[in-house]
């Protein structure tokens, strides 16, 4: 469904992605793991149109989206839930969620139905519905950011470090929700994580990135048993 072929991206003279290729199938959870500076966030930002590749090809449902505008990529069904959550503190929880529908014009009844779905998935947000985004805890903000991304009715959800800055118990809740969402709706997920153990646990396949290249790939269960991965990312 999403296909990335030989993708190269540079910041000025520095090449950060040195020709990576991977794909995501419908209904699949795929993880991109690797350390700081490997190029994981750059990969997601390039897919969502915030950065432009120097060469290579990104295809979404058979169409090349290398040079599409950010909001057109969202409306084509690729939602990006950015690193550090980036919710809108000046808007209420409800307004944050509705802003997720900005890429298309929905009827009021459709928006209400989608809101109900998101609130059903994240009951905490229901309790905070009319509060300002600034008043939420880190875990609630992450749920709001995911909920906002879901409001654009994506068929692929790209999550950038959803565990960042969250307490272990909250991380578990967030990952449970991601899994539940995938099982319930068949939504594809492209997950970028430094918490490799969690990422390998919920994904079907994974790609390991190191300084702009993909060094290993395969079924997540097999990677979790691979001695190289165990040593480098899972703490031995």
């Amino acid at each position: 469904m999403l296909k990335v072929e030989n993708l190269r991206v540079s910041y000025g003279h520095i090449e950060v992605l040195k020709g990576i290729s991977f794909d995501v199938d419908p209904g699949e959870i795929v993880a991109l793991i690797g350390g700081n500076g490997a190029g994981k966030t750059t990969t997601l930002s390039t897919i969502s149109g915030l950065l432009r590749p120097t060469s290579g090809k990104i295809t979404w449902k058979g169409e090349t989206i290398n040079s599409a505008a950010v909001e057109n990529i969202v409306s084509a069904g690729v939602a990006h839930c950015p690193e550090g959550r980036r919710i809108f503190p000046g808007l209420t929880v409800r307004e944050n969620l509705i802003t997720g529908t900005a890429s298309r014009s929905y009827r009021k009844s459709e928006i209400e139905a989608d809101l109900a779905l998101v609130l059903d998935l994240f009951p905490r947000l229901k309790e905070r519905f009319t509060q300002g985004g600034w008043s939420l805890s880190g875990g609630e903000q992450q749920m709001l950011a995911i909920g906002r991304a879901l409001m654009s009715r994506p068929s692929l959800l790209m999550l950038d470090e959803p565990s960042l800055g969250l307490a272990p118990i909250v991380i578990e809740q967030v990952f449970d929700k991601i899994l539940e969402l995938n099982k319930r709706t068949g939504l594809s997920v492209l997950l970028v994580e430094q918490n490799s153990a969690m990422a390998l646990d919920i994904s079907a396949r994974a790609f390991v990135m190191e300084t702009g290249t993909i060094t290993l790939s395969g079924p997540s269960a097999a990677l979790a048993d691979d001695p190289r991965i165990r040593e480098a990312y899972l703490g031995g």
């Binding site: 915030l50 950010v70 969202v74 809108f88 000046g90 997720g100 529908t101 900005a102």
Partner: peptide, 14 residues
């Protein structure tokens, strides 16, 4: 307000 709070997140929301 989304644009003021985070221009990038606003664009990513469409």
């Amino acid at each position: 307000i989304a644009t003021k709070d985070s221009e990038i997140a606003a664009e990513q929301s469409g």
